[in-house]
Amino acid sequence: MKIAVLYGGTSGEREVSLSTGKGIIKALKNKGHEVIAIDFSPEKIKDILELKVDLVFLGLHGRFGEDGKIQGLLDMLNLPYVGSGVLSSALAMDKAKSKQIFSLNGLQTANSKTFDVTGLLNMSDIVEDIKKHFPTPFVIKPNQEGSTLGLTIVKNEGQIEKAVQTAAHSDSTILVEDYVQGREVTVPVIGQKGKETPLPVIEIIPKNDYYDFDSKYKPGGSEHIVPAKLPDNLTDRLKQEAVKAHQLLGCEVYSRVDFIINEKGEPVILEVNTLPGMTPTSLFPDSAKEIGWSYDDLIEKFVELSQLDK
């Protein structure tokens, strides 16, 4: 097939996307496809308008890649692509909206509240509201951002204002939520719509205090235990809830669903990643490897599924 790979982008996750893109491009070539590589930015829309390919493989992360905007453009151009469509991409990117959907459908989420921080004109009111509703420790992060960019774990009230400003650099809406202490796990999901399968559960043991940007992407930044050493009933529940979350948002082809196992041994869902990282240190390929799929095989499976779903 003739496949265009869009990668790079302009979000805070650009460096990760460059690495993801290189991996995808190499895998597709290894599988015999003709590849057109595009380091994408909104200024390069002309490149997309002129594309003549069988499929577009999205190696983008974050804004203008994972949020449904590029998917909408590709839909208008009638260009098939790998992964979720406009609505599911936008919902997954909007942490507050997706949490509402999960909570209404029986999935446990952390208590949270959103704040409009446009222009930070009402900073003192925001700080006081946060103090009123959230005992420390708690988390402040952008409502729409990935890879823990802009995230602060607030351990004392003196950190609140700076944490709000940090999150506001990435989004006009911030999310404040209870900090859930526990084990970090993630479940990759793959499959045709309605027939999705969970891959082995991964436990993530970060070298830093939590699974931050460096832990995710720097070699040796975290340890991935695959499969996670968990009781069978908890493993089954995580897999079922991951598939349920994927389906609730209407995701397609693949996603990765992140959880914290709290101190009561219950899974608390954090988010669904519709375009999870596919770098050499990424989680999804590690899980696939556990069931005998090489990186190249995994990328080819995404291509095959996309032809079925689109």
Rank of each mutant, 00 (worst) to 15 (best):
A242Q: 02
T274C: 11
V127E: 13
V185T: 06
E34C: 09
P188H: 01
G59F: 06
I204L: 14
P135Q: 07
E66C: 04
P42I: 03
R237C: 01
A245E: 10
I48C: 08
L120E: 13
Y295C: 02
G62A: 06
T152K: 04
G221F: 06
Y7P: 02
H246N: 12
F213T: 09
N143F: 07
N78Q: 12
Q71C: 07
A110E: 08
T152V: 11
G65V: 04
N156H: 12
K99E: 15
L308P: 06
V16I: 14
K31R: 11
D75F: 12
L87Q: 14
G106D: 03
Q144K: 11
L60S: 07
K264G: 00
E252L: 11
E43K: 14
F115M: 02
Q159I: 08
F102C: 07
F64L: 14
L6R: 02
F213E: 07
E203K: 02
S88T: 08
G68F: 05
V5C: 02
L87I: 14
E145G: 07
E161H: 01
V180S: 04
I202E: 05
S19Y: 03
I3E: 01
V303A: 03
D39Q: 10
L49E: 12
V5A: 02
K207E: 15
D94A: 06
N262S: 01
N262P: 03
M278H: 09
V272A: 13
G292T: 01
A92H: 05
G12S: 12
N262D: 11
P188D: 04
D212C: 09
G8M: 03
T20L: 06
I269A: 08
S98E: 05
D94F: 03
M76A: 13
F259H: 03
L238I: 00
E271H: 09
Q240R: 10
T197S: 15
A27W: 01
V82L: 00
K207G: 14
Q240D: 08
I126K: 00
I174W: 00
Y295E: 01
L60C: 05
S222A: 15
S11Q: 06
F302Q: 02
S41R: 10
R14S: 09
T10K: 14
T109K: 04
I45N: 05
L283W: 04
G292W: 00
L230D: 09
K132L: 12
D286P: 02
C251T: 05
E50D: 14
S112D: 15
F138G: 10
K301Y: 09
I205G: 12
V185R: 01
Q100N: 15
L238F: 00
L58I: 15
I130V: 12
V268I: 10
S84C: 10
A167C: 03
E271M: 07
S19L: 13
V268R: 02
V117H: 01
G9C: 06
K26G: 12
K207L: 14
H246C: 12
